[in-house]
Structures are given as C-alpha cells and as structure tokens.
Amino acid sequence: MSKILFISAHAPTNLYPQAGQKIALSNLNKYHLDNTTVDVVVIANKAEINAATDLIGKYKNNLFTYSLNKSDKIISCLTNLSIPFKFSTRYQKAVAHKLQALLAKNTYDAIHFEYSHAAVYLDFIKPLINSKNTHTVISIHDVVSQSFLRQSENNLILGIEVARLFKFEKKIYSNVDQLWVLSTKDRNILTSLFAIPENKIIIKPPQLSDFIYKIKRNIEKVDQKSLLFWAAMNRSENEQAAINFIQECFVNLLKIDSEYKLYIVGSNPSAKIRKFASENIIVTGFIENPTQFFEKAQIGIVPLLQGAGIKLKTLEMLQAGLPVISTSIGAEGVETSKNIFINDRFDDWVNIITNLASGKLTIDELSR
C-alpha cells in the first residue's frame, strides 16, 4: 500500500469560490486510489477550512487542519525573519510538530507540497524523511517572485523582498524531485530564471469548472453590448482590475452608448466594488451556477494588471466560446491565440470593444 503526505497552504476544496483551491483538490484526488493512504495537512484561513466539507468528509481521520488569522501570520513573520514573508505566514510550530509526529511513525512514498509556500517546511522535513525512496513534489500555482516583481517598481521594501523570494524559491525548487506547473510559460520561467532542469518539471493544465462544458451559446441568448468579468472578487488583483476597467474604459463606453452592460460575477465583492452597482454594472456576488452569464455575455474581459500564473478565468471564458479581451498578464500561460485579443492600454479597449460589439470586426480581424 502506498502512503502519501500532502501538505497544502490553502484548503483543497470545490466549495470555496477561488480557482486555486479547486486545482489543489484535483491534485489531491490524483493520489486518492484504493491502495493509497493520504495524510492531508492544511494550513489555511479559517473561512476556507470551514467551507471544505467535501475535504473533511473524504479524508476524516487522515486530515489535520490549522486555521490562520491575521495575528497568526504577523507573529509568524516576526519570528521567522530569515524567511520571505509570503512563505513565513504559513510556518506554524503546531504544524511542524504534527509533521514531525507523522514522519516518525510513517514511511511515505511521496511528500507533496501544494502551493510553493507550503514548501516552507521542506528544510524541516528533509532530515526527518526515513526512506531514500521518498519522492518530493511541489505543485506551483504561481511563481511568487514574478508576482512580487510586478508590484516592486519604485518600492524599495518590495524590491528587497523580491530578492529574498528569488533566493528562497530557487532553493526549494532545486531541492525537490519534481515540480508541477500549470502551463508551458511557468515551466519556461523555472528553467530560465531558476536554472531548473526541464526534466524535473511536469506540466499539469488546470481542470476547468464542470459547468463550463455544459454551456451552449447561441445568438438568440446573447445580450448585445454586454461584458463579463468572471473572478473571485475578494482577491485584491481582481478588485483592482474591475475598478481600473470601470474608471478607465467602461465610463467612456457609456458615453458612446448607454446600453452597454458589465456583469461582475464572482464571490465576495467588496464595498468598493458594490458601490459601482447600477443598471449598467451588475455585481452579482457568489453565483452557484453562473451559466446564464456565460451564455448571455457578448464579450469576456480580463483587465488584470497584477498577479502571476495562468488565469483560470481566461481559460474558462475561452472554453465557453466567448471572445475575450485581455491584458498580457490576464493572458499569461494561455497557449492559444484563437478568440483572444491582448492589449494593455485601456484607452484602446474602448475602440476594441465597440468594434467587436457592433460586429464590425472579429477577434481574428483585430489580431491581423
């Protein structure tokens, strides 16, 4: 019988409205076979753990959860100053003690770190591994250094943190047997930026939401001049993307034609986002089945200016058949040029959207 230790920096679940948690559950379930036992250690925000009833029901006595609040993260950062902050927030003494106990009584065939910052325990675990045959894996959702680098321009403190992150990431990625990434783009970053051998890297494209494959778009259902932004709105990069788009593009679209509509569909929109709600800007909050918005929106938008890694929101709108306008960050890792137009200037988006909405041009024609 195989034995796996799965350590995750977020709760693997289909019941929390963010893409990463669903990817984590998909990776966890790959190990869950009849002849395999999986011990699952989760260090995550309390809301995620409370939502993960599918995880709790399935793994029961083999599940060990550790919920975090802001004070826990601050204390961890202050007591582990040698570790970059993104990683030190997940280092908890109680978790280290549990891992020590598990490794003392079990011989694992594989130790899997889900999210790079779960691997903050790698140095602690390595001396405790009692088999030379134990395989170590990190599943990388985002290259953390890349995300922070984009925020560090003209910010000395963040610039210092980027340097610490780069050194730390290079170390952990070099010291495991295998790395899982979501796209060719991330693999290329690891090989070029961190000098990781390509044969250590496995590309595992993310599984899309089940409802995406049931969407049936047709001209009768589509609302002309309607736009869809599909995202978890409690993430700061998504919130800022929506605000930037509204202020720098959508208000100008309404000056041209007051019939334009923007659907902001996703969980936990902040007060900043809700204040934009109007007849033309529909803020839905969490929607259990958002099929109707994918079927009636004319154009999908991904106006992200921050973040790293492949964007599931972009892949899902493309899979559903929407023409998509995206920034280069929103299109990262997307390996098709079909039905997506990439542009980083919101001033240009006004003309792009009006041409697409009126039918004067298609995505293919815009791309020529």
Rank of each mutant, 00 (worst) to 15 (best):
Leu165Val: 08
Gln207Met: 10
Phe166Tyr: 15
Tyr173Asp: 00
Ile201Pro: 05
Leu193Ala: 10
Ile201Gln: 00
Ile202Ser: 14
Leu193Trp: 10
Gln207Thr: 14
Phe168Trp: 13
Glu161Val: 06
Leu179Lys: 04
Lys167Leu: 13
Phe194Thr: 09
Ser192Asp: 11
Ser183Tyr: 00
Ile189Gly: 04
Ser192His: 09
Glu198Thr: 12
Ser174Met: 06
Asn175Ala: 14
Asp177Pro: 06
Ala195Ser: 15
Lys204Cys: 08
Ser192Glu: 12
Leu158Tyr: 02
Tyr173His: 02
Lys204Arg: 15
Phe194Leu: 08
Val162His: 03
Arg187Tyr: 03
Pro205Tyr: 11
Ile196Phe: 04
Pro197Asp: 11
Gln178Asp: 08
Asp186Gln: 10
Lys167Asn: 10
Thr184Leu: 12
Leu193Arg: 10
Glu153Ala: 14
Ser152Arg: 05
Glu153Val: 14
Val181Phe: 08
Glu198Lys: 14
Pro206Phe: 09
Gly159Asn: 14
Glu169Ser: 05
Val162Arg: 05
Lys171Pro: 03
Thr191Ala: 00
Glu161Tyr: 03
Thr191Pro: 01
Ile196His: 04
Leu182Asn: 11
Asn188His: 13
Leu182Met: 15
Lys171Ala: 10
Lys204Ala: 09
Pro197Asn: 12
Asn155His: 07
Thr184Gly: 07
Leu156Trp: 06
Ser192Phe: 01
Ile157Pro: 00
Glu169Arg: 04
Ile201Ala: 05
Gln207Pro: 00
Leu156Thr: 11
Thr184Lys: 14
Ala163His: 08
Ile157Gln: 08
Trp180Gly: 01
Ile157Cys: 03
Glu153Lys: 15
Lys167Phe: 04
Thr191Met: 06
Leu158Gly: 00
Lys167Gln: 09
Leu158Asp: 01
Gly159Ile: 04
Leu165Asn: 09
Val176Ala: 06
Pro205Trp: 09
Ser192Asn: 14
Asn154Lys: 13
Asn175Gln: 15
Pro206Asn: 09
Asn154Glu: 11
Asn155Ala: 03
Ser183Thr: 08
Ile189Lys: 09
Ala163Met: 07
